[in-house]
Structures are given as C-alpha cells and as structure tokens.
Write a protein that binds this DNA or RNA. Structure first.
Lengths: 170, 170
DNA sequence: GACTAACGTTAGTGGCACTAACGTTAGTCA
DNA sequence: TGACTAACGTTAGTGCCACTAACGTTAGTC
C-alpha cells in the first residue's frame, strides 16, 4: 500500500492538514480564512470569482468563508462600480493583522511538518510538487459546467493582477 | 501561497484524490474499499481493530466500509474462536479479483498523476514523503482517547503479521 | 469479583471539494 | 432594440475522509 505515490501523498497531506487545522483552530480560524487573507494581502483586492480562481476555492464555499471573515471585520465587500455583478473584496487593517498571525502559525506548522528534511530536501520536495501541480494545470475552476471547448477565449476586462501592490495600502 | 509546502502538499493530494476517486467511482468503489482489500490481500486476515491500524481507517468508518464489502461478497467476517470480541475479516476469491481490478485502476492513476516526473524523480518524491510519514510516525490510531501515558505497553496476543503469507490462500 | 482495556457498533461532526439551480447584470450580435 | 449567452454572487445540498463520543460486550488483571 505504501508503495503507491498517491497513498503517500494523501496520507502526508492528511497529516499536514491535521497540523494546519489544529494550528488554525487554536486561533478560531480555518484553512479557507488563511487562504483568502493571504491571497488578498499578496495579490490585492479582487472580485469573488477572481478570488475563487486564485485560491482554488469554489465560489459556493467562498460565500460562506467571506461572510465569516466579513462579520469578523477582516475583509470588506463593496460593489464594483464598473460592474454591478461584482463585489470587490478587500482586506481591512484588522484582516492584515489576522493574516500575519495566521501566516505565522502556518509557518510554524511547516517546520514541524518538514522537520526530518534538510533545506535542500525541502526545496526538492516543493519543486517536485510544484511540477506536478503545473502539469495537470488546474486550469480555471469552473463555476458551473463549462462547454468543453469554450475555455477562456474572450478574457474581456478580466482582473489583471494589480500589477504590483496597487491598492494594497487598504 | 504556493510557497507553503503544506499548500503544495494538500493541493497535489487533492488532485490525486480527485483522480483516484474518479477512477474508483467508475467501478463503483471508493478509496476505503481499495485500502481494505489491498491490506487484506497483502497482509492476510485480521481483526477489524488490526485492520484499522494497518489501513489508517477509523474503526467507526471501517464498520460501514466492511458492511459494503461484505454485502458485495468481497470479504467475510467470522467470529474469532480465540476471542469472542473479535471478528476475523478475510478476503474472498471475488474480493481478490476486485482487489486486483482496483489495483489496476489505482496504478493507472499513479501514472497519470506522476506523468511529468522521471523514474528517479518519482522515487525521490516517494522517498521524501515516506520519510515525512515515518517521522511523525502516525503511531497507532486510537480507538478512543488514550490515557496519554498508556501507549502500547502490554501487547498481549496482538496480531503479529502472518509472518509470511500465512492464510493468504483464502 | 471489581477494574481496566480492547472489541465492534452506532451516531454524529467538521473540513474540503464539488454539483445544481436561481436571479441578476454584462457583453454580443442579429 | 431585443434575443442570446455568459459571468456574477448566492443558496442548498452531496460525498469522501478524518475524527469524537458513547454503548454494550468480552478478556485479561489484581
């Protein structure tokens, strides 16, 4: 059984998930919260749909997670004047702080998780995993079933990353 | 975000899980079924508690999975004459066949998953993951909360692995 | 004969991934 | 202009897997 890479992968991931969840739960947070805050801090405000793509969180799950973050005052939703369908989600000052706190916890967990590996080995592992993810390129999370041929043709005014830290000073 | 090993790990694992689930679902099976059959085939019959330890499946989940496998005729439960608390779970001939079928599917998935990696790299990845698992040695899944000091003292007549393929000829 | 622990079982929780359907708003193109 | 298509946010619900809690039963221990 332990010769199957997918077994090793899922078991290790399960353990990682265990550690992460534990670390976050101690702060009353869950994984989605961190993912979202981290993405907002690193890459700036975005519509929910765009956020979902960035974080690989389904739109349907996003709604709930954002509700939680919003009612805790960590993010703000405001209607996009340029497109009434969209909410622009931005992180607040408190959210930034929260993000940093969760990042610290996440980092601590990494160390615990990777304890037996040397620095080079950690890089090796990360590199291999990254390559796996890039191939299989998790190619835009469909909000609903996409007509199989129709992938991303007209990109229109798609959110381009705020080119640097555009509005990051929220 | 993609600099966090645990992120890479869980994302890759999620994808692996996706592929595996898909592959098994096409055969009307789920992950637990394969894990159990594989363990029974490879390491012989066992009590449910022992099986749970071998496969890292919780006893509570095991019951359901075994019910499914049993009613499909893939495994048999019989009372252990030496210990009335125990069921001895053994794989049937049909179960062996089913196991092989699922193993083939699992193997196919591995290839798809690891497509971008060379043989050495695959070994590397497996090795690194194995080391992570060994450290953090997922040390005997507690059936219920264990008094923190009391881990595995008197092992009594614990199932020792059937030393080779003891009863594998079921 | 009391105590403790392992056994199998039932029931239920929680995180994460994923599907389905709905009303609304934007662009496209006849 | 008006039909069509697609993206948007939302609600509701499913499924797999990990995990907790509690119960009655059977085994060993002192």
């Amino acid at each position: 059984m332990d010769h199957l890479p997918s077994w090793l992968l899922t078991q290790t991931a399960a353990h990682a998930h265990r550690l992460v969840t534990e670390g976050f739960a101690a702060a009353g947070a869950k994984g989605y919260h961190y993912r979202l805050l981290a993405s907002l801090i690193a890459d700036g405000p975005a519509s929910q749909a765009a956020l979902g793509r960035r974080t690989a969180i389904y739109l349907s799950d996003l709604v709930g997670a954002l509700n939680e973050l919003e009612s805790a005052g960590f993010v703000e939703r405001s209607p996009d004047p340029a497109d009434k369908r969209r909410n622009v989600v931005a992180v607040t000052a408190a959210g930034r702080e929260r993000g940093a706190e969760l990042a610290a916890r996440a980092a601590a967990v990494q160390d615990e998780l990777l304890a037996p590996l040397s620095a080079e080995e950690r890089e090796q592992l990360a590199g291999l995993l990254r390559r796996l993810l890039e191939h299989h390129a998790l190619p835009v999370r469909p909000a609903r079933h996409e007509p199989p041929g129709a992938a991303r043709v007209s990109v229109r005014n798609e959110e381009r990353p705020p080119s640097a830290d555009g509005d990051l000073s929220a």
